[in-house]
Computed example of a mutant assay.
Amino acid sequence: MTTEAAALAAGRAMAEARMRETGRLARPGPDVYDPVTGETTTASTPLYTGKAQVKPTQAMPEGVQAEQREVVLMRYEIKLPFAAVPAGPVRPGDTFTVDTSPDPRMPGLVLHVTGVAYSATATAWRISAEVRS
């Protein structure tokens, strides 16, 4: 193993050690109406389940106008293990749901994927996302 390959492997191991959240990456599907319960749910296709690091990438939320109301966007970066192989390609519109975190406010947080970065020399797989309110 070359010095560069060894340094990259060590960096990937360190990045993965900092992944203290767990969560689920999924592709939302069509809404499904249950006539028995009268409830509508959104079907989804699971892409990845496991460890992650989730952190905000901007200091303050950003207000944007959507139709007749203001929507607050908060941008996040999701880091997955470099070796993570999802069940399909990750695309904008997919969602990441935080299941567990040392921060008790994060479980249940749903992030909407806005972009995916690829790099052979990255220490983690980085996914851009936002939370919408």
Rank of each mutant, 00 (worst) to 15 (best):
residue 4 E to G: 10
residue 4 E to T: 14
residue 5 A to R: 12
residue 5 A to F: 07
residue 7 A to R: 10
residue 8 L to H: 00
residue 9 A to S: 09
residue 9 A to M: 11
residue 11 G to H: 03
residue 11 G to N: 11
residue 12 R to P: 03
residue 13 A to T: 07
residue 13 A to Q: 08
residue 14 M to L: 12
residue 15 A to F: 02
residue 16 E to A: 04
residue 17 A to N: 01
residue 18 R to G: 15
residue 18 R to Q: 13
residue 20 R to Y: 08
residue 21 E to G: 04
residue 24 R to N: 06
residue 25 L to Y: 03
residue 26 A to P: 00
residue 26 A to N: 02
residue 27 R to T: 02
residue 28 P to L: 00
residue 29 G to K: 05
residue 29 G to D: 07
residue 30 P to E: 13
residue 31 D to I: 10
residue 31 D to L: 13
residue 32 V to G: 08
residue 32 V to A: 14
residue 32 V to E: 08
residue 33 Y to Q: 11
residue 35 P to K: 08
residue 35 P to A: 09
residue 35 P to D: 13
residue 36 V to G: 05
residue 38 G to R: 07
residue 38 G to D: 07
residue 39 E to I: 04
residue 39 E to W: 03
residue 40 T to A: 07
residue 40 T to I: 06
residue 41 T to D: 13
residue 41 T to M: 07
residue 41 T to Q: 09
residue 43 A to N: 10
residue 44 S to E: 11
residue 46 P to Q: 13
residue 47 L to M: 04
residue 47 L to D: 05
residue 48 Y to M: 03
residue 49 T to F: 07
residue 49 T to M: 04
residue 49 T to P: 08
residue 49 T to G: 12
residue 50 G to S: 12
residue 51 K to H: 11
residue 51 K to D: 10
residue 53 Q to I: 11
residue 53 Q to F: 14
residue 53 Q to C: 14
residue 53 Q to D: 15
residue 56 P to E: 12
residue 58 Q to P: 11
residue 59 A to S: 15
residue 60 M to I: 10
residue 60 M to L: 12
